[in-house]
Amino acid sequence: MSTITLLFSIFLLTLLMITTMAIVRTRNLFVAVMLMGIASLLIAASFFLLDAADVALTEAAVGAGISTVLFLGALALTSERERSPSSLPLLSLGIVAIVALIVIYATFDQPPLGSPSAPVQAHLTPWYIESTRELIDIPNVVTAVLASFRGYDTLGEVIVVFTAGVGVLFLLGTGASASAAGAPLSEDNAGLRHYLIPRILGRLLIPFILLLGFYVQFHGEYSPGGGFQAGAIVAASIILYSLLEGEQRALLVIPQGVLLAMMVGGVLLYGAVGVAGLVLGGNFLDYSVLDSDPVKGQQWGILLIEIGIGITVAGVLISIFHAFASRGAA
């Protein structure tokens, strides 16, 4: 990183520090959520400056489309203001300041930023980059590590996302219960139907957002992207649709049953690819045996499990949104 980009990065991080302090200080939760939006943008820009294009894309898809909507949905059902003041503010501040100083003291033992002799750069990084070229032959090393070298880990993460989604549905109920089957569509009070400009522009853009989601999904081996990002982008487009047309119509387009099938189906697809490796004589999640050419087999495996990830993430995020929104309607 040249000095000038380092300075940009420091400027962004300083803005981020100011934003977080303002988030914690304000007693108005709505303001805190809006400032969280700014913090998310700053974090994504910092990721980009630190060479993490894939991570910046994930933060963009999640932070811009989904996180604000979820927090606002929760605020609509609770309250916008904090009632009680901080408990023991001075004691907490003291403890927090001491811990911060200890952490800062510990950083003096860090290798300097970007140093080639840092532990992480020494052994693993060159190995991953070389092996990706040799064994998998796709340009995006992040996708290769995510889907193939650390496939077990990612399977675990997808199951965590799935479990969180199931937990939300257990706590709040599915959106389907609020709009019972056969209930008439309430046309007058649904979403932003009466706001002509947002509605028309939003409807115009939904196909493009979906298209971008599929592009990110299937181009993830060549450029930043992959299942996690694509799932979030597709979920954002459906969330936009239900903001515009109302909860019930969105549930007509993709019913709750389909969403549940997506949540389960993605995880099952991921697992099935792993089992297929076992059946064909390899190890669990070893994609080399999927094709006569091991490199081709790896590429097939990555494509399939990325689709599984995308389906599960989209299903979980849309279900969570419906669960929150239908609570508000009931």
Partner: peptide, 14 residues
């Protein structure tokens, strides 16, 4: 991605 989905937050506010 940002150009396309950043405005969803404002719709949520509305």
């Amino acid at each position: 991605v940002y150009a396309l989905i950043n405005f969803i937050g404002v719709f949520a506010v509305l």
